[in-house]
Design a protein around this nucleic acid. Structure first.
Lengths: 325, 325
DNA sequence: CTGAAAGCGCTAACAT
DNA sequence: ATGTTAGCGCTTTCAG
């Protein structure tokens, strides 16, 4: 078959089913308010199926004034692998509502998000963290109908993550905690929100604030941080994520220290290599399918004018205990 | 600003510049064969800029008969982080040719690729490995003009990777190699192609074929494989990727063995945690920007009817030596 | 060199 | 209950 084969149009389907294009359109979009005989409907559906008809997206959205494309902007962060699972789940959940999700990785070399939004004719743009005001405006101008999340960190349960990490450590008897902050600037705001959760948990438990130290994914840098914690008698550290946790473990090795005896470490994400570390890392993971479903509901709700009815709860988080704590 | 703000159309630009829509179209797409006065051109460009005009993609592709959307199908594999770097690079390279790339993660729950292709009106669909014949047909029917790669494994330099791993080990004096095969079925074909490279390298060096053993990312499973290699006096193993290599290291730890003394290990991908492993892992990495640029060239070439002029060379691969070998 | 006019394939009033 | 018709915003012959 040649790539140039003419595409099946709704007129072809109409002809094959012996009806008009209008009727085809009504049936295929099952427009409410038009009671079309079951027989006719069946004939149309059958013809469409047989011809492998797919409405041309450009024509459809040009006429209808809106597309069913959802654009997910994935930030250019060193994100764990688990995120791709989330993306799939979200795409699946949205597909269930007739929406098609594609993703765009927002690298430095990439084109500006609004350009991509316009290029794919997206009517919804979603991100992981909220966009700054200018971007939001540009996205609307680029044709987006909905931009989410509206509020910063609204859907990432940032603080709850930190709380969970800290509570886990506190529950195991640690009284002096540390926080391993990533140096990467783009991770900063997310890390700070998670840290807030850790701080709250400490205060609630009557402990001092955690000792916050930055580290990169370099062993030497991590070793410095480890020295800082041990000097200040920290016994347990919450790491921003699993990679950071692995770096902390590597830093401890430099000092001949081992978890959890010398220092307990908790990560976030449950990346595949978390369980392969020495020792395997205790981590906080998301119930990805559930989070994705929530997000999808929210999107559909906002699209249809209702306000987002669902709040993100920390019930979607879970500690996976392993031997690093 | 409200999401409902009316979008700027080419008519607005035409009016603002005091010309007709036709002229606007010619200038903005700089159609060849029409010499438009520099003055007029400038006025139009300026107006478009000032109004933040973006042609509506649906209208444009409906009229032109083709979109400038490239859809990248990312397989549902436990893919390393490096891949996202590649995706960004590719998107950037394509953007340089006026194409917009978005990606679709092909999870089990996801919609079929042809549906997505039709939904986003993609004119190019690219994958990592070649698609099966039925899918290709369906994609063409769904409106794709170009589907790549045409030949299996054509662009992933699978064998060269294996060769490089093996040659590195052989160069360090290892005479009996092992290969750590991932158990995940979707990784199978890719792994086998890489293995072929290892086998060739062994044969070329006059060594026996490598001892191929499967492993998962479970420590116990990896420990079994390690036992298998040591029993058969293997001294160096090529792992399918860094995650597998990390698993092998973990398996060795179970037996009280350490790299590189007891067994040398080479990975592939250079994931961030590779250097944090104990010991840091020697790995093979791609020159991602360069590979992406090659791919982009190929796509543009095929789109414009020329045959793909560029062959993938192993010069785009490099060994990153670290202490695991 | 620029403008008028005819669609691209589809949806959605408006007729019938 | 179905068909007719007028666009959606853009590209692209074809005249001027």
């Amino acid at each position: 078959m040649t790539p140039a084969a003419k595409r099946v149009t709704s007129a072809d389907v109409a002809q094959a089913a012996g009806v008009s294009r209008t009727t085809v359109s009504f049936v295929l979009n099952d427009k409410p308010g038009y009671s079309i005989p079951e027989e006719t409907r069946r004939r149309i559906l059958e013809a469409a199926e047989r011809l492998d008809y797919r409405p041309r997206a450009s024509a459809r959205s040009l006429a209808a004034g809106r597309s069913d494309i959802v654009l997910l902007a994935v930030p250019d962060l060193p994100i764990g692998a688990g995120i791709s699972r989330f993306i799939e789940e979200l795409a699946g959940a949205l597909a269930g509502h007739g929406l098609t999700m594609v993703t765009h990785l927002a690298g430095a070399r990439g084109r500006p998000l609004p350009d991509v939004c316009a290029a794919v004719d997206a009517s919804v743009v979603i991100g992981f963290d909220s966009f700054d005001e200018d971007t939001v405006q540009a996205l609307y101008r680029a044709g987006a109908d909905v931009v989410l999340p509206a509020r910063a960190g609204a859907s990432l349960a940032l603080q709850p993550i930190g709380r969970l990490q800290a509570d886990h450590l506190i529950g195991r008897g640690h009284r002096r905690l540390g926080y391993a902050m990533p140096e990467h600037p783009d991770l900063r705001s997310m890390a700070e929100a998670r840290l807030d959760g850790v701080v709250e948990a400490c205060l609630d438990a009557g402990l001092e604030r955690p000792v916050v130290l930055s580290t990169s994914l370099e062993i030497a840098r991590a070793a410095q941080a480890v020295a800082g914690w041990t000097e200040r008698s920290v016994t347990g550290v919450c790491a921003f994520n699993d990679e950071t946790a692995i770096a902390v473990l590597a830093g401890m090795r430099e000092h001949g220290l081992a978890a959890p005896g010398d220092l307990a470490v908790v990560g976030v994400d449950d990346i595949p290599t978390a369980r392969l570390a020495a020792p395997p890392i205790t981590t906080v993971c998301f119930d990805l399918p559930e989070v994705a479903r929530h997000r999808a509901e929210e999107i559909v709700a906002v699209l249809s004018g209702r306000e987002s009815p669902v709040a993100f709860t920390s019930a979607l988080l879970q500690v996976v205990p392993r031997s690093s704590t």
